[in-house]
Design a protein around this nucleic acid. Structure first.
Lengths: 212, 212
DNA sequence: CCACCTTCCGAACGATCGTTAGCCTCCACA
DNA sequence: TGTGGAGGCTAACGATCGTTCGGAAGGTGG
């Protein structure tokens, strides 16, 4: 893929994340590329192609991140690794992650079906960790693993709303205006820290020792 | 407000939740109302008015739900009540909740500012519970309450993607096609159950007793 | 030197967008 | 009985939408 074409995909990811797919016109994309809108069709066949490409990049990135989680070893460590991996993708490729989580639903036809399947598979991989943890006795044997996985995935899927490339310590907030921000930044120890704090909370809970 | 006007607001909430604000045209709204699109302007001044109204309804509903949480008593019980209240709003007014969580960002100008302020206030109220719990010693005294609140709010804010009016037991999934679904249904014991399961997980964690 | 490929331009297309206008009908109420 | 407001109609507006097209500049490799 030519470098100009890739540049267009990056721009599309950024604008789709910022203003939404339907809120971004071909004209907006062209302006951001410093070009007339008709010129974009030297690179793409349709606007929908761009959404598809960015969404697929998201699928690839998140699955690849999960691939780095070992298949053996203590489940607790693997859950921590999975959460780290997920948050790292969000922090490093915030625009792509945003499209993956929020804008994918404007895909149409087979592409949408294919995306949904990949997304379900991702969640299933995540969930399997909790099920395995319960079955092996490393998590509570009475654990409702579906709910546990849902809780963990909620934190993961919501992260794009507050995680920033620079990865400052989070506020509890979730709403944040446009805030274009920098280009996708490097992951930081802070992102891993945050994932670990989530993991610790999920594992040990918030209740005081006294009332345990 | 006339009944026809209210009907329009309901339709707008439904379509905005289903296809997104920018993905819903005035023509779509008119068709859903069984009317020519020009006729809608007997009720509104602009499409943006509808988004504003639905978003404000969301603010009102979520704040009102939090108002039912007692200001005294065990923090643990209040957290449970807050989570129940939130999920109940999502289950009972799914369309409005979806706009509140996902579509609000297409608000413009002062309205957007006002909405963001209300949303921040909501999150702050939520967060205060965890801070108070730590300060009173009812939660772990070493609790990172900002992260704890973020985790709880993530579950709450993500709920609109999987909670359904009928409120079946959840899958771990998060992606779901259009799925028009029924009109907003009544809340059920199941919704409260789910909130309680989240609360239990948040409080006591997933780790096995053996490894505590 | 020529042929080709990439990239862009400028202009235009039909469609759809949100919104406005004037007119009509019907019903509640004085 | 008459008046007015609520609600809807048809038609049209200017703007913007995604997309197409023919042509031209610029560089690369044969």
């Amino acid at each position: 893929m030519s470098s100009r074409r890739n540049e267009l995909t990056r721009t599309a990811a950024r604008l789709f994340a910022e203003k939404g797919y339907h809120g971004t016109s071909i004209g907006d994309l062209a302006a951001a590329m410093g070009v007339q809108k008709g010129s974009l069709y030297a690179h793409i066949e349709s606007k929908a192609d761009l959404l598809w490409e960015v969404a697929r990049e998201g699928s690839t990135a998140f699955h690849a991140a999960l691939d780095t989680v070992p298949e053996e070893g203590p489940v607790v460590e693997r859950i921590r690794a999975a959460l780290r991996a997920h948050l790292r993708v969000v922090a490093e490729q915030l625009d792509v992650a945003t499209v993956f989580v929020r804008e994918w639903r404007y895909l149409e036809g087979e592409r949408r079906d294919e995306f949904v399947a990949e997304r379900r598979r991702y969640e299933e991989r995540f969930r399997a960790l909790f099920r395995e943890g319960r079955e092996l006795g490393e998590l509570r044997t009475d654990l409702d693993d579906a709910t546990a996985a849902l809780l963990a995935l909620s934190a993961a899927n919501w992260a794009y709303t507050w995680l920033r490339p620079g990865s400052r310590p989070p506020k509890a907030g979730a709403s944040r205006p446009g805030a274009g921000g920098l280009a996708d930044g490097a992951s930081s120890p802070e992102t891993d820290d945050l994932a670990d704090r989530f993991t610790a909370l999920l594992l040990d809970g918030m209740r005081g020792y006294a009332s345990r």
